[in-house]
Amino acid sequence: MGGRESDMVLLDANGIRCDGRRIDEPRRIMIKAGGLKNADGSAYIEFGDNKIIAGVFGPRDVHPKHMSDTDTGILRVRYHMEPFSVSERKNPAPSRREIEISKVIKEALAPAVMLEKFPRTAVDVFIEVIQADGGTRCAALSAASVALADAGIPMRDMVAACAAGKVADTVILDVNNEEDQAGQADMPVGYMPNLEKITLLQLDGVLSAEEYKKCVETGINGCKLVYELQKKALQEKYFQNGGQQN
């Protein structure tokens, strides 16, 4: 955690957080499937003040060719933040942070995607953070998962993601930017809700053994909320009358 000293009251006496949420309440989440014309699949997510677009291409030919695998398709993920997405301009070149996040998102999606059905091909996932406000990797993973489904790529499950954390010695759901900077712990969780598998898990900040367990459970609960919105987004695009297949 940043551990920066701040005058902000992260949790008031009534259990209300700095942005007015309760401890188990996520930010406003809006997910839309599709949106991009040229991509094979796409999704747009607003997660609090995060605004993120995900686009999927493939399965398609692998370039460079030596990366291809004769046994399975490969998944490639690029997570990228626009220079204007954060308060101080970010250098557009990929940072070490973005390289790491690209890798953990790829590894979080991989167990869900049936890549073995498409040997010698690549599925490319491009994630662009238009505006960032804490918890971008979770929002990005949730959007990427919807984009993969929108591309019609066979999947074992969706991957939903939400962070849990600790502020003012209390375990909370969905850490925002202020809570990330001044709070005590941040734990992004990626989860396959039907297979009950955690596919993304990171933590920075100090937690006791009990808090650790509670944090993972809280994160999983958040993932389940996100999962419902992911399904809804796909239903809205493909079954326009609210999920009733005719």
């Binding site: 890798k103 167990p111 898990l201 933590l203």
Partner: peptide, 22 residues
């Protein structure tokens, strides 16, 4: 106390496994 964690690789963990690893 647990102060940092990183999951890696293309598989997944159950909640019980994550707690056990802790």
């Amino acid at each position: 106390n647990i102060c940092a964690l990183q999951k890696g690789g293309t598989g997944g963990f159950t909640l019980d496994e994550v707690v056990k690893c802790g």
